[in-house]
Amino acid sequence: SRHTFEINGERWTVEGVSEELKEILRAAERASNDEAERLLRLALKLI
């Protein structure tokens, strides 16, 4: 499935992501810059 999210003013669209990964991306959208970066690094390990 496709998911579009915005982090630090940048929009991203990813396809074929699991519900778990979507949850991480949604958390990154709400997080501070440092926390968002940490969550994105974690998410990339899952891809």
Rank of each mutant, 00 (worst) to 15 (best):
N33A: 15
L42E: 10
R26K: 11
N33K: 15
R38D: 08
E29Y: 03
S18N: 10
A43T: 01
E10R: 08
R11T: 15
A43M: 05
A31Y: 03
L42P: 01
R2C: 15
R11C: 15
R11L: 15
N8G: 05
S18T: 13
G9T: 02
R2W: 11
T4S: 12
W12K: 00
A43R: 00
V17A: 15
A43D: 00
A31D: 02
V14W: 05
R30C: 11
A28D: 00
A43C: 06
E15R: 03
T13V: 14
R38E: 10
E15A: 08
E35T: 06
E29A: 08
I24A: 02
S32E: 13
E15L: 08
F5P: 02
N8Y: 05
L40E: 00
E6V: 14
V14A: 05
R11E: 13
L42M: 09
L39Q: 01
L46T: 07
R26P: 00
L25R: 00
K45P: 05
A43S: 01
L25H: 00
I24D: 00
R30G: 11
E6N: 06
E20M: 08
W12P: 00
N33H: 15
D34N: 10
T13P: 02
R2S: 13
E19H: 08
T4Y: 13
L44I: 14
A28Q: 01
L21H: 04
N33C: 12
I24W: 03
L44D: 03
R41S: 11
A43E: 01
R30Y: 07
G16P: 05
R38A: 12
A27R: 12
L39W: 06
F5K: 02
R38T: 07
G16V: 14
V14Q: 01
E23V: 10
E6R: 02
A27Q: 12
L25A: 01
G9P: 00
L40Y: 07
G16S: 10
A43G: 02
L21Q: 03
E37F: 09
E23C: 13
E10G: 03
T13Y: 12
R26D: 07
L42R: 04
I47L: 13
N33Q: 14
F5Q: 03
D34W: 09
V17L: 10
V17G: 10
R41C: 14
S32F: 08
L46D: 04
V17P: 14
L46K: 07
L25N: 00
W12S: 00
K45I: 13
T13N: 04
A31W: 03
E10W: 06
A27F: 06
A43F: 15
R2G: 10
G16D: 13
I7Y: 04
E6F: 14
S1Q: 12
E35H: 05
L44G: 04
E10K: 10
R30T: 11
E6T: 10
R38W: 09
F5W: 02
E37Y: 09
S1K: 11
R26H: 13
I7P: 02
N33W: 15
R2T: 15
W12C: 05
E20F: 10
F5N: 02
L25Q: 00
L21G: 02
V17S: 05
T4W: 13
G9F: 03
R41G: 08
L39M: 04
K45M: 13
L40I: 07
I47C: 12
S18C: 15
S18I: 04
H3V: 12
A31Q: 03
L21F: 06
H3L: 15
I47S: 03
H3Q: 11
R26V: 09
E35Q: 06
S32D: 13
R11P: 07
K45D: 15
L42W: 09
R30M: 13
F5E: 02
L42N: 04
E35A: 06
R26E: 11
S18G: 09
S18F: 05
I24Q: 01
E37A: 10
L40T: 02
K45L: 14
R41T: 12
G16W: 12
S32Q: 12
W12H: 05
E10V: 15
E15I: 15
L40F: 06
L39K: 01
E15C: 15
R30L: 14
L40G: 01
T4L: 06
E15T: 12
A36T: 04
R2I: 13
E37I: 11
A28I: 06
E19S: 07
L21W: 04
R38L: 09
W12Q: 01
S32W: 05
R38H: 09
L44T: 07
L44S: 04
N8P: 01
G9K: 01
A43Q: 00
N33M: 12
A27C: 11
V14D: 01
R38N: 08
L44Y: 04
R26A: 12
I47W: 05
R2A: 11
E15N: 07
S32A: 09
R38Y: 09
L25F: 14
T13C: 13
R11I: 15
A27P: 00
S1P: 11
E29I: 05
I47R: 02
R38C: 12
A43N: 01
G16R: 04
E10Y: 06
E6M: 09
